[in-house]
Design a protein around this nucleic acid. Structure first.
Ligand code: SF4
Ligand code: SF4
Lengths: 138, 138
DNA sequence: GCCAACAGGACCGTTTCACTCCGGTCTCGA
DNA sequence: TCGAGACCGGAGTGAAACGGTCCTGTTGGC
């Protein structure tokens, strides 16, 4: 199996959709999220840190602290989330930076990968957390 | 960087497009292919074996032996080649076999991944070696 | 000041990646 | 017939990535 998402990316999306189910600004603790979405808590900690660093989530320390979305759920896409934890999506060496392969200027295959990449980005960039969340919870 | 093709997959496509430049049935040796496409030869050996096993290439042993496409270049796609060496393409756990994740039946994210997978397959399955080969060499 | 909760960095076992090596086998052709 | 040329196939390998864990801060509410 190739071309597959990492576990970290999958968990990140689960965590973010969990937050998206609640009203804007709702804070949930690491533990809440981990329990609800069945994500190992110590691993989730790392993932949430990445999301905070990327500016997609905000954290609140101290008692009653936790995590919340940094902006409305309709303004965060699957692509944003995945790239925050796994780094930029690049379906082949040459799709992120054509300089990586000296053949790229004349390579027909390169063009095919660019199309593939674009399609993938379109799908992932077109899905917002809002559209992923089940009926909101009050 | 996530969701990226392996080197093996990339090399496989290079090797196959090399074969596709020649008239049907043309045999090229491991060494020829490796030199022309700048692929480490001992690694290429493994890759070509996978392609032969998958029925995409045929091999000829003994002096003047080598490899050739098993069918016309217009009947082999990028998808075929990649799956032969890297195994089935699956963009997430749940896209190959929904049973892998018990959430899949109700998961909205799952549907998004299915769309992404389909788009990717469409692109890769729509590109034949014929269309990738530069002007054929006599 | 205590306790709840995140921050951040070190660590770690396993798997995958990207190759390499080598003995074996087949085949042509001199 | 015999040997050089070429693939077969399985084992091995070093480095890196994956998928976590742990532990010591630090912060903030009550
Ligand atoms: S697809 Fe073409 S340009 Fe891209 S890495 Fe392969 S050879 Fe280079
Ligand atoms: S996307 Fe949904 S169905 Fe697929 S693995 Fe993640 S949770 Fe499971």
């Amino acid at each position: 199996m190739g071309l597959q998402l990492t576990r970290g990316g999958e968990y990140a999306i689960r965590a973010m959709t969990y937050l998206a189910r609640y009203p804007e600004g709702h804070v949930a603790s690491l533990r809440d999220i981990g329990r609800a979405q069945e994500i190992p808590e110590s691993f989730l900690a790392k993932i949430l840190q990445s999301l905070v660093h990327a500016g997609l989530a905000v954290s609140q320390r101290g008692a009653h602290g936790g995590f919340a979305l940094a902006r409305p759920a309709e303004q965060i896409t699957m692509r944003d989330v995945i790239e925050a934890v796994d780094g930029p999506i690049s379906v082949n060496l040459c799709t992120l930076d054509p300089e990586e392969c000296k053949r790229s200027s004349t390579c027909e295959v390169h063009k095919a990968w660019l199309r593939a990449q674009e399609q993938l980005m379109d799908v992932l960039g077109g899905v917002t957390l809002k559209s992923l969340a089940p009926q909101p919870v009050a």
